[in-house]
Amino acid sequence: MKVIDILNNSKKTLFSFELLPPLKGHNIETIFSTIDKLKPYNPAYINITYHREEVVYTTNSNGVKIPVKLRRRPGTVGLSAAIQQKYGIDVVPHIICGGFDAHETEDALIDLDFLGINNILAVRGDADKITGRFEAKPGGHSYAIDLVKQVANLNKGIYLEKLMEEPKPTNFCIGVAGYPEKHPESPNCDSDIHYLKKKVEAGASYIVTQMFFDNRHYFRFVKRCREAGIKVPIIPGLKPISVKHHLNILPKVFDVHIPQELVLEVEKCKTNAEVTQLGVEWAIAQSKELVKANVPALHFYTMGKADNIAQIAKNVF
């Protein structure tokens, strides 16, 4: 079922979460173990991230370091199919700009369509870790809106090349990302909302937000979106803090703010186990307030960990 239909047909706040594909050479059973711990809370759908290639350095026989590109987490399409087949839960694979040209993107979308997967999340993807800039692969897309347009075209039976046979339209529901504290590369919030609206107008059916730790950011973001004429569901994304260094790494990587009240409490913790429990309690409080506000769903970024998410879900759903 399409995510938009799942949302529209529900009278209560739904539960969903995001998974990372296993590292190359690892076993799919670790993913199944995570899902098994969260399945009792009736996830409405499961997101699967996509990852671009990374640059690592190896030393050649002359002792010179040379850059090598590799993909550490392949398998999003296969993992999505395996989860949907095994659990009967709708999946939402991510489709990204970074590292893929338009023809590779079309091939991935065709594979997903063959497999009966009707949902995707279209995101630009991360900037290059070395240069700090995002650069599209030759023949690829520079912005998420271009991905949305490509998928919307496939839904109309418009492929990149003219087909000899009658083209079969796909049937994808398209989700996109939103940033309650604005995208780190956006000059201001108004500009950010402007381009988000363009993605909706191009064919996106719903929005899922970047993580935030103060619900006021989410409520202000929704208000700005509605004032701008964006009417699609806006799903809050949550990530519980679980280790002390999240205080430094999360703001740096995701450009989010952590409330001083939470910072002070984390700094009092003597172990990461205490931090994890504090993160759970904070996320439970966030979740309950959001459920009371009748948000369409709560979407959790698991980062490969299920125990803390399960504890939150147990207290909320």
Rank of each mutant, 00 (worst) to 15 (best):
T76D: 00
I284P: 01
I145E: 02
N9H: 06
P240C: 08
V123I: 15
V243G: 00
A273C: 05
G304I: 11
H257S: 15
N171P: 04
V222N: 05
N118G: 10
K69A: 09
G88F: 08
F17I: 01
L247R: 06
R133H: 14
I83T: 05
D255W: 05
I230G: 01
F32N: 08
G139C: 08
T170W: 06
H51E: 04
T30H: 13
F317A: 10
H257R: 14
F212Q: 03
F317P: 02
V56S: 08
Y195S: 12
S186H: 08
L23K: 09
Y206V: 11
T131F: 03
A82T: 05
I207S: 06
C189H: 15
P184A: 13
F221H: 08
H194C: 12
F221T: 09
E181V: 04
S287R: 00
H217T: 09
F100I: 11
L290I: 12
N155Y: 00
F17E: 04
V91P: 00
V123S: 07
C269K: 04
A82V: 10
N42F: 09
L19M: 11
Y50R: 14
S33M: 10
G63W: 04
L290N: 02
L154H: 04
P169W: 12
G237K: 04
N42T: 03
D255E: 14
K239R: 14
E104P: 01
H246Q: 02
V295T: 06
V208M: 11
F114I: 13
E166P: 12
V68H: 08
P93V: 00
F100N: 14
S287V: 01
S80F: 09
D190G: 14
K12M: 12
K2N: 12
P40F: 11
I28C: 03
H183N: 15
M211R: 04
L290S: 05
P43W: 01
I207G: 03
G98Y: 02
Y41M: 10
